[in-house]
């Protein structure tokens, strides 16, 4: 089997298992109150981590590059209550401009 197909098989199988685990084991039942107050915060926590890592990480190093200009533009768009697509487009245009000028 080629390297690429090995990656696809293992990553695909693990992801299917990860996603199914909670709903298969606990589906339809209420979580205990302690766990519930923890998972209620999961969405803001994980999304915030994804934002900073996808903006400032390149592999295992922290970098400040055109993506930072992009996220700044997105933040301005969000403050101005721009629609989602305008926000995303603003980020792409800002990052592209910084790269073109650099």
């Amino acid at each position: 089997m080629s390297d690429v197909w090995l990656v696809i098989l293992v990553v695909g199988a693990c992801t299917v298992l990860f996603k199914a685990l909670g709903p298969v084991a606990l589906g339809g039942r209420d979580l205990p109150p302690g766990l519930r107050s923890v998972v209620a915060l999961l969405a803001p926590t994980l999304l915030a981590a994804l934002v900073v890592v996808s903006t400032f990480a390149s592999g295992r190093s922290l970098v400040l590059d055109a993506r930072a200009a992009g996220i700044a533009a997105a933040a301005v768009a969000i403050v101005l209550r721009a629609p989602l697509l305008v926000t995303v487009a603003a980020a792409a245009v800002a990052a592209a401009l910084v790269r073109a000028l650099a």
């Binding site: 934002v51 055109a66 992009g70 997105a74 926000t87 980020a91 792409a92 990052a95």
Partner: peptide
Amino acid sequence: PERLGLDAAFPALFLALLVGQI
């Protein structure tokens, strides 16, 4: 894709989703 800034679209999308979650 980087020349078009598409790599910055991803964090921007997550930021927009994040704001709606708080």
